[in-house]
Design a protein around this nucleic acid. Sequence first.
DNA 1: ACACCAACGTTGGTGTCGCCAACGTAGCAC
DNA 2: GTGCTACGTTGGCGACACCAACGTTGGTGT
Lengths: 150, 150
Amino acid sequence: MDSTAPQSPAGLSTTPSWLLNQAATHAARLLSEGFAAHDLRGYHYRLLATLAEEGPASQADLGRRCGIDRSDVVAVINDLAGRGLVVRAPDPADRRRNVISATVAGVDEARRMGDTVERAQRDLLAPLSTTEREQLTRLLTRLVRHHSGH
Amino acid sequence: MDSTAPQSPAGLSTTPSWLLNQAATHAARLLSEGFAAHDLRGYHYRLLATLAEEGPASQADLGRRCGIDRSDVVAVINDLAGRGLVVRAPDPADRRRNVISATVAGVDEARRMGDTVERAQRDLLAPLSTTEREQLTRLLTRLVRHHSGH
DNA sequence: ACACCAACGTTGGTGTCGCCAACGTAGCAC
DNA sequence: GTGCTACGTTGGCGACACCAACGTTGGTGT
């Protein structure tokens, strides 16, 4: 009556939102375990990777691109700047803005974290074939696109 | 330079873990908006629905089945009991346990919330065809099964 | 020139979810 | 009886997503 089966919430386990939640939870766990080795979190990676790939940007812009609230960007940039991975400079063209740039060390860390993320993807998608991975990515992309278009 | 495009974090938008996270976030938002009308949250639904579908169970058992920590179950059951949706009774066969049962009102609320959840699923999967929905469910199920088999 | 509104960075919250440590109580195996 | 385990409960923590408000700055309309 009390086996060690921790799963299957009855009819819940068939609802897509439940499955999405569970899958995302597992993915987040894999990622955060990887990030722990860098002593950073998901927010750090999103911002740092975006900076490394797309070049300097204002905090508000970064937040928009990464789906992170302006107010949350502040603290994370503070942290990244404190580690020398990022530089915060006032925008001479618009004194409301700060221009955030990844330092050399920042770009380096972004690359290393990228490797960590790649490893997590492989672990995450381990049970799926290449074709299935593409299917999943395509379906999720459609979903996300539809719902982020407001 | 500052269009109202809040998305596409560069190379991030192609990683499955990012897509899963985004999709799950949208799903959670849809669900929680629906739950708000019942003045309840996701935890409440999971427990209540499980009780309504599978009958009475101990708190620890419920937690295991729903993927909710024992300590979190306590507060939610308190809340549900305070609303008369659930009854907490000591288990005569094992005095460590509490037997939680859904009341008539609880089963009723579970049904109503089930409708809300169904509506959320439809909104969530709106951009996908029936075949694609089945594909997605199948792929996610495989993923979750693989990773919850520890 | 002035008033007005929008955007920026920042502070300081809120809520949900997932998890962990510790305690006292109760059952079970040896 | 001595241990080990499970139970419910309390109280905490961290990550993430979000919101309200403020002072500052830019841009617009008049």
